[in-house]
Amino acid sequence: MPHPFENLADLALSIELLKTAIDIQQKIAICGDYDAHGMASTAILLRTLRWLNVPVDYAIPSRISEGYGINQRIVEEFYREGVKLILTVNNGTSAFEPLARARQLGMKVIIIDYHEIPAKLAPADAILNSKLISESSPYRVLAGVGVVTVLAISLVQQLGKTQGLVKSLLELFTLGILTDIDNPPPLIGINLLWMERGLQQLPESKLVGIQALIQMRGLSNKREALSVEDVRFHLVKSIEAVGSISDPQIVIELLTTDNNELALERAMQCEQVNQRCEVLCKEIEHEAVAWVRESQINLQPELVLVIVKPNWHHGVFKIVAPRLVERYGVPTFIGTYEDENWIRGYGLGISGFHVFKALQSCQDLLGKFGGHKIAGGFSMPAENLKAFQKSLNQFAYNCL
């Protein structure tokens, strides 16, 4: 592997910003994300900075009331708490207004992300986004958790304090890289190398939270490396459930605590939430299948399935949508009414159907939307539902 400084343009600058903050004991804050990928990434940075005895805090936006990414409320809260340096994790590249406000308030900003590059980058002192790395670079495959890990390891190497930390970071990296249900990072190159190391280390992990989760999921008797399936369908599944319908702080505390009792308590909470999440998913899937059957929708002329029903929990759409796509074989958009006038939803595509471009094609009908080739989220006025469905089908006719 070439040195990451040669491949990540702002990595050296990011290290200098962090070293300056550490030297003068400035408060640092992390804005993470509520999915398992984002929570593992946040835990990596928290563990690293606490290892270096840096005053650090974090915030994760509410999935229910705020949605994805850093926002104005979080920026203002950081400012009131005396934060001098903000690190966004798995978000921030397109958060123009909140980060412009942060800079206006005199805070420095490092964006750590892997999402698509918008036409207008958010203002920041440094941007570490794998989409900005040359396509010929072995670091191009990094997801957000990988970019965070490169930054964390580079920082402790620069400070000569790697001993006893790096193994734990690779274990957290492994939890992060095996998430992203709708847009899994490619398990090749550095992703594969670090994941294989993490799988080997997990059974004997020194992180009490990981050990508690392993115990709770019945994997304690495994002394050899855990498999990808063990991690994805046991450990990560519990973590993802918390991010979907509960408080991400449960997971952050699980992955960053060194207290055995707290770790076991948080692992039990993860398992309880996971069971509740599975019940929710089955209920929504059952209702969606019943709706398709009762409406007698013909999925030959209707190339896209759009289902919107009241009283569904949008936090589990990311889990339910793949089941419906597998059942019906068409791009599927599911949503619920936040109130009688507004819909919030999630779409998952199939080969040949680019979800983000599909949403762009009907953006005049939408409020907020975002995503990538495979999946995306959206909101819209309820009165636009029929026009939205017609527009998606027109898009599908042109590409499928």
Rank of each mutant, 00 (worst) to 15 (best):
Ala21Val: 01
Lys27Val: 03
Asp33Ala: 13
Ser41Trp: 00
Thr42Met: 00
Arg47Lys: 15
Arg50Asp: 12
Trp51Ile: 09
Leu52Asp: 09
Val54Ala: 06
Pro55Thr: 14
Val56Tyr: 09
Tyr58Cys: 10
Ser62His: 13
Arg63Phe: 05
Ile70His: 14
Val75Ala: 06
Arg80Val: 10
Gly82Pro: 11
Gly82Arg: 03
Leu87Gly: 03
Gly92Cys: 11
Gly92Asn: 06
Gly92Lys: 05
Arg101Phe: 13
Lys108Leu: 08
Ile110Asp: 05
Tyr114Ile: 01
His115Glu: 00
Asp125Gln: 05
Leu132Pro: 07
Tyr139Gln: 12
Ile153Cys: 02
Leu165Gly: 12
Val166Gly: 08
Leu169Asp: 03
Leu170Cys: 06
Leu178Ile: 01
Asn183Cys: 14
Pro184Tyr: 13
Pro186Phe: 01
Gly189Arg: 09
Glu196Trp: 02
Leu199Ile: 09
Leu207Trp: 02
Val208Phe: 05
Gly209Ser: 02
Gly209His: 02
Ile210Arg: 02
Gln211Trp: 05
Ile214Ser: 02
Leu219Ser: 06
Leu219Thr: 07
Ala225Asp: 05
Val228Met: 05
Arg232Met: 15
Asp247Arg: 06
Asp247Trp: 06
Ile250Ser: 05
Glu253Tyr: 11
Leu255Gln: 04
Asp258Cys: 07
Asn259Gly: 00
Asn260Phe: 07
Glu261Asp: 12
Leu264Lys: 15
Ala267Ile: 02
Cys270Ile: 09
Glu278Pro: 08
Glu283Trp: 11
Glu285Trp: 13
His286Arg: 15
Val289Thr: 15
Ala290Tyr: 10
Ala290Lys: 15
Val304His: 03
Leu305Asn: 00
Ile307Gly: 06
Lys309Ser: 13
Lys309Phe: 08
Lys309Val: 10
His314Asn: 06
Val316His: 10
Val316Gly: 04
Lys318Ile: 14
Tyr328Cys: 11
Tyr328Met: 05
Gly329Ala: 09
Tyr337Leu: 14
Gly352Asn: 04
His354Ala: 06
Lys357Val: 04
Ala358Tyr: 10
Cys362Leu: 04
Gln363Thr: 07
Asp364Gln: 10
Gly367Glu: 04
Phe369Asn: 02
Lys373Ile: 10
Ala375Leu: 03
Phe388Leu: 02
Lys390Arg: 14
